[in-house]
Computed example of a mutant assay.
Amino acid sequence: METVFKKSKFSWEDYFSDKMKDEHRFSTEESLAKEAKEKLFHLNGRKTLLDFGCGAGDLLIYYVPHYEKIVGVDFSSSMLFEAEKKVRHHKYKNVDLILADNRTVWEKLDTKFDQITVAGVVQYLTPEQVDDFILNASAYLNEDGKISFFDIIDPKLYSLWKIGWFSQNFIHRDIFLRACTSCLKKISAFLENRPADTIGNSYSPQIIEKIARKNGFQMEYAKSMYYEYRYHAILSKIS
């Protein structure tokens, strides 16, 4: 009897299903406060905020004092459980947490927002999903509202970071060895039907801007202060 071996399909939902910690370079209270302060600078206040992909709430709890109402969304129940503990610890009353993904979140919302923030999430979406997200999000923005995609991985800069380019101890002769190691990891990941890097996909600013303009948004570009290979894309409606 002839049998056909089928690989199980990888999904980021499954990967994060039991995770309980967000991925930050530094997870100390001081460093998270600084990272949140940078993002709050770009968000520029107002009253209501949708934090899509809030994870364990590491940044969300720093946003709360600056808004009248915040809704945090994530597709990982274990992550939301951790976020809920943080919200209760700080005794915040102006936060709602919703279990949903980029497809189901919209049917669970009953209000519009001044700001929609998406931090470290674009890397887990396909270009088509990014397109759909912007299209759907635009219907839930108040007048002059903005969508802030934070910490998008820049493919060119990430490649340089991966080989240690930004390290103070960078040695040029190590480039070949690092490149070979990276190729072997990609081949292994392909054979095992898993991502070559659990950090996710990378998108150039030009790709994000093209998708944004297709949906009637203009994009403001800003480099991340804490990750050499990441950037922020602040989207506002073209007037």
Rank of each mutant, 00 (worst) to 15 (best):
Y203N: 09
D96L: 10
W12H: 02
F170I: 10
A137P: 11
F176Q: 09
Y92M: 05
R230D: 09
D18N: 14
Y92S: 04
K39T: 10
L184P: 00
S31D: 14
E23N: 13
A119D: 06
F5K: 09
G45F: 05
I238G: 00
S239I: 12
D151F: 00
G200T: 02
T198I: 13
K223D: 14
S31V: 04
E68L: 04
E143I: 12
R88P: 00
D22L: 07
G120W: 04
S138P: 02
P195A: 07
Q123K: 09
K21M: 06
A196T: 11
Y227H: 14
I98T: 04
A137C: 10
H232N: 12
S17E: 13
A233S: 15
E30C: 01
W161E: 15
K34R: 10
D101G: 00
F133Y: 15
D51P: 03
A196F: 10
G55T: 04
I61F: 05
V4M: 10
E68S: 14
Y62T: 01
E68K: 11
P155I: 11
E192G: 01
L191E: 10
M1Q: 06
L109H: 01
D51Y: 01
F133S: 12
R173S: 14
Y67H: 08
A179E: 13
R46D: 13
K185M: 06
Q123L: 07
N215D: 04
M219L: 12
D18T: 15
K7W: 00
S17Q: 13
S202F: 09
G200M: 06
A179T: 15
K237C: 05
I163W: 03
A137K: 08
V118D: 02
S31H: 08
D96C: 07
E29K: 14
A212H: 03
H232V: 07
K37M: 03
E29I: 12
A179K: 12
S239D: 15
K93E: 12
S78W: 04
I147Q: 03
D131H: 15
S17M: 05
S8N: 10
N169V: 07
S202H: 03
R230T: 08
V95D: 09
D74H: 00
Q129M: 09
E128K: 13
P195F: 14
N142G: 05
G200W: 06
F149T: 02
S159I: 00
H66R: 14
M219R: 03
F113G: 10
I70D: 08
I207M: 08
K156R: 07
S77E: 15
H66I: 02
D197V: 05
D197G: 01
Q123I: 03
L177T: 14
S8E: 13
S224V: 03
D96N: 15
Q115D: 08
D154R: 01
S159T: 12
I61M: 06
N142Y: 01
K19T: 12
I199Y: 12
L80T: 06
I61R: 07
E143D: 14
D197I: 02
G120P: 02
G45N: 01
C183W: 11
I234V: 15
V95F: 11
S31L: 07
F16C: 07
K93G: 12
N94K: 14
T181A: 13
I116S: 03
A83R: 02
Y229V: 06
D197L: 02
A189K: 02
L125P: 11
D14E: 12
M1V: 08
E220M: 13
